[in-house]
């Protein structure tokens, strides 16, 4: 038989954890976006694994949707970044803290 599902799930969990950590550690907005992509991929991996485990095509369908949403998100997010950079050279996320109380 193929590799047990647990391995995939552990792999996905590790990937998710790395993505989350990276999101919190890095200050470059673009890299933070990449970390989000990592987390999304971890989720996708989980979906596919469960689809196989449960013999359900729905998991793969969900992955398709996540792909679409991720694409849309990246597009809009990058547009925002471009708009921000146009107003000022905000190299990092920490330069923007207008909400400081």
């Amino acid at each position: 038989m193929s590799v047990p599902s647990a391995w995939y799930l552990v792999l996905a969990a590790v990937l998710f954890g790395m993505g989350a950590t990276g999101l919190l550690i890095r200050r470059n907005v673009l890299i933070m976006f990449m970390c989000i992509e990592l987390m999304l991929n971890a989720v996708n991996l989980t979906f596919v694994t469960f689809a196989r485990l449960l013999n359900d095509i729905g998991g793969q369908v969900d992955v398709l949707f996540v792909l679409v949403v991720a694409a849309a998100e990246v597009v809009v997010g990058l547009a925002i970044i471009v708009a921000l950079f146009r107003r000022r050279a905000a190299a990092t996320a920490d330069d923007i803290h207008i909400l400081k109380g």
């Binding site: 933070m32 920490d94 803290h97 909400l99 400081k100 109380g101």
Partner: peptide, 10 residues
């Protein structure tokens, strides 16, 4: 409590 609101997204 205001100090908690640093304004940093991260």
């Amino acid at each position: 409590l205001r100090r908690v609101q640093t304004g940093y997204v991260r």
